[in-house]
Design a protein around this nucleic acid. Structure first.
Lengths: 140, 140
DNA sequence: TCTACAACCTCTAGTGACTAGAGCTTCAAG
DNA sequence: CTTGAAGCTCTAGTCACTAGAGGTTGTAGA
């Protein structure tokens, strides 16, 4: 049996975050000692590991909830899990596309100015003042 | 003179967002009609355009505040503006690096499963359960 | 067995950048 | 002069935590 602090050390998830996960229903309520402190078993450790990994991969709490549901009903098709993963992949690719456009503009803006003029004619500031300077469509 | 709705249409910034920008000090308080409605001039329009563009490029409200300060003191060096832009670029590149790693893992996870098995041995779920399956270090 | 104190508990509030809604007032066209 | 779209303020909600106050429990060492 682990205390919340030991669970935290083993998974790298902070103690208040573990309590938060319990609060929002991502972790099943842990057993308690007589003095009301949480105690976890190997199962709890594994579930938190799963959550941690999925969060690292950018899955939302909602998506992780759905995935955990699926885990607990092994008879159900895993099509839903695949869909969630593919949605997440599409999200990531969209973000990559946008960030790449931002990078292009920021390079242009940063390189246009050597930083030693007065801000009166700073290229950074004039670029930001007018979207028409941009070479790509960007937005986040 | 423009109403807040006209300003919104011209810049693409939503009305409540314009009020929010005023509230946090990003936009100077607008003049008002006798009936207490905001009225903007060309200056206000340009400032909001600047903010919109900078937000699209991912600058934080705080960074934009600093940039606007610089704009209003044309005698000050623009080094600070360049630094802000370069910090932002570094941020974007870091995010790109992480998202690229995520993409790699998500492709691996998504492709490992054709979605027609039972969730009992779903590759998506087992991958998420164990970080050791991953080929790269990823986290967001 | 006692004591000290690290670790635990709950609860509330704050983060960033908005967004939504209630309940009220004003502007402008017909 | 009426009507209704658009404006106003204020509070609260979003996401995924994080911080802090103020109190309680577990456990190692004396």
């Amino acid at each position: 049996m682990f205390s919340i602090g030991q669970l935290s050390k083993q998974t790298g998830v902070k103690v208040p975050t573990i309590r938060y996960y319990e609060q929002v229903g991502l972790l099943v309520s842990a057993g308690r000692t007589e003095g009301n402190q949480r105690r976890y078993d190997k199962d709890g450790l594994e579930r938190l590991g799963f959550i941690r990994h999925a969060r690292d991969l950018g899955f939302s709490i909602e998506a992780i909830s759905a995935l955990i549901d699926l885990q607990q009903h092994p008879d159900r098709s895993c099509q839903e899990a695949t869909e969630i993963a593919q949605d997440q992949l599409a999200d990531v690719r969209e973000k990559l596309r946008r960030l790449t456009a931002l990078e292009t503009e920021l390079v242009r803006i940063s390189e246009g100015c050597d930083g030693d003029g007065s801000s009166n004619d700073c290229y950074v500031l004039t670029s930001l003042a007018d979207h028409r300077h941009c070479r790509t469509e960007h937005y986040c």
